[in-house]
Design a binder for these strands. Structure first.
Lengths: 254, 254
DNA sequence: CGCAACATTGAACGGTATCAAGTATGGTGG
DNA sequence: CCACCATACTTGATACCGTTCAATGTTGCG
C-alpha cells in the first residue's frame, strides 16, 4: 500500500481529463457547502480557503488549498461539499468534471487509491489544526501555521531561501487560527521583533527556521514530504522553479 | 457515486475477513502514532479516542471512535498512523489485518470507495470539531460534543429515548473539546441546571434536545445519517437493541 | 488624489486557566 | 459488611490570555 504512486498511464489519463486551466479573481466562491460535487479542482497557483460559517455569523477556516492541492475530494466521496471554498488570492485552477473523475476511477484503480490518500493527508493536516486551536497558545499557533504554509509551498516548488508569496491578509490568517484579527497582528509583531520572520503584505520569509519551528512545535512529518497531492499532475509548463530537494522516486518513510 | 453501498458480496467478504472479536480494557493503546498500519479495527462496542500529545506534554483528542466506526483508515491510506488511539472505556473490536484489507480492496473495488467515504466522513467530523475549538464558546462547544456523541450512538442503535451509555470522564471530555477539566465541569453543571441534560458517571440523557441543539448550534448534516461507516458490518449477533428508525435500504440524501 | 482595504495601537472587559482545596463514588480486601 | 483507597467530581479565588471597541496609520489602486 505504501509508495503507491500513479502509474504513468494513469498520470497521463488525468492530465488529459482536466479542462484547460482557468483563472479566478480573489473572493470567487468555488464550492458551496452542501452542494453536490462538481468535480475535482487542482490548484495550479494561488491560495483558496475552505471555510464554515456558524449561525452566529462567525466563520472558521478549516483548510487551505495551495499549489498542487486538490479541491473537492470531500464532495466527491460524500456526494456533497462539507464547506465553502473561496479564493483568498487570484488563483489558477484545472477542473476535472465529476463524470470524467468517475470514468478515470473506473478505468485506473490506482487513481482512487491516490484520491483516498490525498483525503487522508488533508485529514492529517486538519488534525494538526485542531491540536493548535485546542491546545496551542496564540504565538505557537500562528507560528505553526506560518511554518506549515512555508513548508507546503516549498514542497510545491513555490518557495526558496528568499521566502515565498504570502497572499493571506491578517484577517484571513485570524480566520484560520481561530483568533481575532487584532491579536494576530500583535503576535506577528512579536515574531518580527524576535527576528523569526519577515512578513510584508504579500511575501513571507522565515528568517530563523529552527527557532520558529521550536516556538511553533512544528514537526513536518504530518505533511508527508514524499507525496504531494497533485503536484505531479501539473502540466510541464506549470511547474515553476526547481523542485529543490525532491526527486521523482517514491520516498520510503518506513 | 452517491448511494454507493457495499454489494452483498463485498459485505460478506468483509465479514469473513475479520478476526474473531476481542475485548480490551480501558486505557489499552491500540495504535501508536507514526507506526505502520496493522490493519483496520471495527468498533463493536465501547469508545476509543484518537489523541496527539505535544512536546509540552498537553494532549488533544482529535477524534472519537464509537460503535460502528473504523479505526486505522489514516494509517492504511498513508502508511502510518497520524495519532495514538486508546480505549476510553472497555471495548470490543474486530480486526482485519493489513494483508486481508489489501486483498479485499483488490477483489472488490467498491470496498475501497467505501473506505474512502468513511475517511471523508471522519474528515467532516474533525472539521466540525475544529470549528468548535476555534469559534465556539465553552458552553456551545461542550453541548455540541454531547449532541454529536448522542446522535452518533443513536445512529449506531446504541441509544434510545432513555439516553445512552456515556463512558467518558470529564477529563476525557475536556481533552476532546480543548478546555480544562475544571471548566468542563462548570459547563456541565450549567447544562444540568438548565434541564438540558442528565449526566451521571456512566450515562447521558438529553432532556431537551431542541434547546440543547440550539445552544450547541448543532446540525447533524455532517454526520451523514444515511451512511454508517461499518455499522452494517457487525455480525448479526453483535447488533444490539433495535435499529429504530433505520432500515437496510440505502438512504438517498440528494 | 482620494478612497477603500488593510494594518497598527491602546484601554477595558471577559472567558478560561490555574492552583488548591474539599466531596462523592466505586472497587477491594479484610 | 465495613474500612479503606483511588479515582472522579465539585467548588472557590486569582491571574492571564485574548477579545472587543474605537481610533489612527498606512498602502495600493482607480
Amino acid at each position: 500500500m505504501r509508495d503507491l504512486r500513479l502509474t504513468p498511464t494513469s498520470f497521463a489519463a488525468i492530465q488529459q481529463a482536466a479542462d484547460a486551466p482557468r483563472s479566478i479573481p480573489t473572493d470567487t466562491r468555488l464550492v458551496e457547502r452542501d452542494h453536490p460535487a462538481d468535480g475535482l479542482h487542482i490548484v495550479l497557483d494561488g491560495v483558496l480557503a475552505s471555510c464554515v460559517t456558524l449561525e452566529s455569523g462567525v466563520s472558521q477556516t478549516v483548510g487551505l488549498y495551495l499549489t498542487g492541492d486538490i479541491i473537492g475530494l470531500d464532495a466527491m466521496a460524500l456526494g456533497q461539499a462539507t464547506a465553502n471554498v473561496y479564493a483568498v488570492s487570484p488563483a489558477r485552477l484545472a477542473r476535472i468534471p465529476t463524470g470524467r473523475v468517475k470514468a478515470l476511477i473506473a478505468e485506473h484503480p490506482d487513481i482512487m487509491e491516490s484520491l483516498w490518500r490525498a483525503t487522508a493527508r488533508q485529514n492529517a493536516i486538519l488534525q494538526e489544526w485542531a491540536i493548535g486551536m485546542g491546545r496551542r497558545q496564540a504565538l505557537g499557533q500562528v507560528a505553526h501555521l506560518l511554518c506549515e504554509i512555508a513548508f507546503r509551498l516549498r514542497l510545491a516548488g513555490k518557495a526558496d531561501e528568499r521566502g515565498c508569496d504570502f497572499p493571506l491578509t491578517q484577517s484571513a490568517l485570524a480566520d484560520a487560527v481561530g483568533l481575532s484579527t487584532v491579536h494576530v497582528n500583535r503576535v506577528l509583531q512579536l515574531l518580527r521583533a524576535d527576528d523569526l520572520i519577515q512578513l510584508t503584505r504579500t511575501r513571507l520569509r522565515i528568517v530563523d527556521w529552527p527557532r520558529l519551528a521550536a516556538v511553533a512545535d512544528f514537526d513536518p512529518g504530518y505533511l508527508g514530504s514524499g507525496d504531494m497531492d497533485a503536484a505531479l499532475l501539473l502540466p510541464p509548463g506549470d511547474t515553476q522553479r526547481t523542485r529543490e530537494g525532491r526527486d521523482r522516486r517514491p520516498m520510503h518513510q518506513h
